[in-house]
Amino acid sequence: MNAKTDTSLPALARLLGRLDGKKLFWLLLLAGVLLTLSDFAYHRHEIFDFEALPLFYAGFAAASVLVLVLAAAIFRALFKRPETFYAPFSTDSEPPLKAQEGDHA
């Protein structure tokens, strides 16, 4: 069942369910575009020359994520090993902890 309309879920969960879809992306994009347009609406006080480049902050952030995602992919390709790699000297391959159900009222 759709989490947004599942009445068995808490109200907050239904609200958060709205974040788990396409709508959030479009809302973020709209906010991002509006924020970027603000660059043209007022004069920013730059300290470094490159800050004056159009869409500098938006572009820098998006490029940073892209670089990071690519670097992470390269690191995964080079350095990823099975969870048992250091066993039994690490906790990585140990069974999950016992999930706790009790409420500490």
């Binding site: 992306f25 973020l28 906010a31 970027t36 902050y57 938006a58 572009g59 952030a61 998006a62 994520v65």
Partner: peptide, 17 residues
């Protein structure tokens, strides 16, 4: 404004990717 631009485009990039 600059910080909000950084944060919003970081999130946009994540969801797009």
């Amino acid at each position: 404004l600059t910080q909000l631009q950084v944060l919003s485009f970081t999130a946009i990039a994540f969801f797009a990717l």
